[in-house]
Deep mutational scan, measured.
Amino acid sequence: MTEYKLVVVGAGGVGKSALTIQLIQNHFVDEYDPTIEDSYRKQVVIDGETCLLDILDTAGQEEYSAMRDQYMRTGEGFLCVFAINNTKSFEDIHHYREQIKRVKDSEDVPMVLVGNKCDLPSRTVDTKQAQDLARSYGIPFIETSAKTRQGVDDAFYTLVREIRKHKEKMSKDGKKKKKKSKTKCVIM
């Protein structure tokens, strides 16, 4: 069974824990209790493949930012979460993405942009803004509501699919490099 290491990042209060708990335990946590770091595991079937999701729910508070490099190193894919009623959390996505790329030393890291709290009427981040940002990053965008469960499975499952595509691409690139290195030079 394939294991996928997913990391949920975003500013404090955007609903990272609520999304994760909704996926794992099928219930909505409405009281806000700032996370330092929590880890969850769940076995699911995605596109006919049974897999184990190892999900790291991270601290959004700035005082825990020193811990970010460590979990970013171990993560295979990242859910970059903002709240649709919090423009600052949307603007912060850029910083999370840049930090992930720096730590992973790669421009090509599996990510999904997630606009959470889409059940709320007080939207300050337009869907088109988020779609445009995701398009500019070359990553999928999904709106979710941890409260109603809308888009929750889709967000995590899409990230797994992005990781699969990335692994497939990397193995193809690896095979191309191996083929090239088999060419021999004969000096007579």
Rank of each mutant, 00 (worst) to 15 (best):
T35E: 02
D54S: 14
G60F: 01
E37S: 04
D38V: 02
V29Q: 13
E37T: 03
S17V: 00
V7L: 06
R41T: 06
V8M: 06
G48F: 05
Y64C: 06
Q61P: 07
V9L: 15
D47C: 06
L19I: 11
L23D: 07
E3G: 15
E3M: 14
L56E: 04
T58H: 01
I55N: 07
I24Y: 04
G48Q: 11
C51W: 13
Y64D: 06
I55V: 14
L52W: 14
R41W: 05
D54V: 06
P34Q: 05
D30C: 13
V29N: 13
E49L: 04
Q61C: 13
E37D: 07
T50F: 08
L56C: 08
S39D: 08
G12L: 07
E31K: 15
Y64A: 05
G13Q: 13
A18V: 07
T50V: 11
G12R: 06
K42E: 07
A11V: 14
V29A: 13
P34F: 05
G10Y: 00
A59W: 01
V9D: 04
D57A: 01
V8L: 08
G60K: 02
Y32C: 05
Q43P: 12
E62L: 07
T58E: 11
L53N: 09
K42Y: 07
V7Q: 10
T35Y: 00
G48D: 10
D57R: 01
Y4W: 08
G13F: 12
G10C: 06
G12Y: 08
D33Q: 05
T50D: 12
Q61L: 10
T35A: 00
D38W: 00
F28T: 04
G12P: 12
D47H: 10
L19Q: 14
V8T: 06
Y40S: 01
I24G: 07
I55M: 10
K16L: 00
V9W: 04
G12N: 07
I55D: 02
L52E: 12
Q22N: 15
V45P: 12
V44H: 13
D54H: 10
T20P: 03
E31H: 14
N26W: 06
V9K: 03
G12W: 08
E62G: 09
G13S: 11
T35V: 02
I55H: 06
G10D: 00
I55G: 04
L23I: 10
V45K: 13
G15M: 00
L53V: 15
I21G: 13
G10H: 00
N26E: 12
T20Y: 01
I55Q: 03
T20F: 00
T2A: 14
T2L: 09
A59H: 03
L56T: 09
A11G: 09
Y40Q: 00
E31Y: 14
C51F: 12
Q22A: 07
I55P: 03
Y4C: 13
P34T: 05
C51A: 09
I55Y: 04
Y64W: 10
V44K: 13
A59D: 03
S39L: 15
D30E: 12
K16N: 04
I46H: 10
A18I: 06
Q61E: 13
E3N: 13
Y64I: 05
I55E: 00
S17Y: 00
T35P: 00
I21F: 05
E31S: 15
T58M: 02
G13K: 09
L53R: 03
Q25Y: 07
I24Q: 08
T2P: 14
R41V: 07
G48C: 05
L53F: 11
I55R: 00
L53Y: 09
T20I: 06
T58K: 02
D30V: 10
G12E: 14
G48W: 05
L56F: 03
A11H: 09
I36P: 00
E63N: 11
K5T: 04
V8P: 00
V45W: 08
D47V: 05
Y64P: 05
D30T: 13
S17G: 03
G12Q: 14
L56A: 04
V44L: 14
Y64S: 06
D57E: 02
V45I: 12
Q61R: 10
E63Y: 06
D33E: 06
G10M: 00
Q25P: 02
E31C: 14
T50Q: 12
V9F: 13
T50L: 09
H27R: 12
K5V: 02
D38K: 01
D30P: 14
G60E: 02
G10W: 00
G13D: 12
R41P: 02
V29S: 13
D33A: 04
G48R: 10
E62S: 09
C51Q: 10
G60P: 03
I46F: 10
Y40W: 15
V14Q: 12
D57I: 02
Y4E: 11
N26D: 13
Y40A: 01
G48N: 11
V45T: 13
D33C: 04
G60C: 03
T58V: 07
S39I: 02
K16Q: 01
G60R: 02
E49H: 10
D33I: 04
G60Y: 02
V8F: 03
K42T: 09
E37G: 07
G15H: 00
I36V: 05
E37W: 03
D57H: 01
Q61K: 13
T2H: 14
I24D: 05
Y64G: 05
V45S: 14
I24S: 12
L19G: 12
L6E: 02
G60W: 02
A11D: 09
Y4S: 13
P34W: 03
P34E: 07
T50W: 07
I46C: 11
D30W: 10
I21Y: 07
V9T: 05
I36C: 02
K5M: 03
I24H: 06
G13P: 12
S17M: 02
Q22F: 06
D47Q: 09
I21N: 15
V7R: 15
D57C: 02
I55F: 09
G10I: 01
V45E: 14
V45F: 09
V9H: 05
L19P: 00
L53W: 09
I55S: 10
L6Y: 05
L52A: 14
T50K: 12
L56K: 07
S17N: 01
Q25E: 08
C51G: 10
T58R: 02
H27F: 12
E31R: 15
G13H: 13
D30S: 13
N26T: 09
Q22L: 04
S39K: 15
Q22Y: 05
C51M: 10
Q61W: 05
Q61I: 08
G12V: 09
G15A: 00
T2I: 09
Q61F: 06
I24T: 12
I46N: 13
G15R: 01
I36N: 00
T50N: 13
G15D: 00
T58D: 02
Y64E: 06
I24V: 14
I36T: 02
V7C: 10
C51K: 10
